[in-house]
């Protein structure tokens, strides 16, 4: 089954990403994690995202499109990236999510992907 591991960074993780001294090693850990997924043969896509302030929200309201600066969610946790993995069941997906180097206070959300007709 295909699962998407959605990376939500908490305040600690976001602070690390903003700190030039700590950002490099932290991203290095994520790179190693991605490599481990590839080496295990479960990696099926993904991307890391730039900081939330680089986001643009394109909102649909009453049939009209509104463009706004900033990320959609105004919360302590922020979307920071995602991985798609292909594993037999939820337990395996949870196991991989548990191995991520995410900083304290962060959340890895495990969601099954919608499978197309093929």
């Amino acid at each position: 089954m295909k699962y998407v591991l959605v990376v939500h960074e908490g305040p600690e993780g976001l602070a690390t990403l903003r700190d030039p001294a700590r950002c490099g090693p932290y991203m290095g850990a994520w790179g190693a994690y991605a490599k481990a997924l590839v080496d295990a043969g479960v990696f099926a896509g993904g991307a890391g995202l730039q900081l939330p302030e680089t986001a643009t929200a394109v909102r649909k309201a009453a049939g009209k499109v509104q463009v706004q600066d900033g990320p959609f969610a105004d919360s302590k946790e922020q979307l920071a990236g995602f991985f798609q993995i292909d594993v037999p069941d939820l337990d395996k997906a949870i196991e991989w999510a548990g191995k991520s180097p995410i900083a304290d206070g962060g959340v890895m959300e495990v969601r099954p992907a919608i499978v197309g007709p093929n």
Binding site: D89, D91, A93, P112
Partner: peptide, 10 residues
């Protein structure tokens, strides 16, 4: 069903 929870003894 949707989340693919395995019927397994851990």
């Amino acid at each position: 069903k949707a989340a693919g929870i395995a019927f397994e003894i851990p």
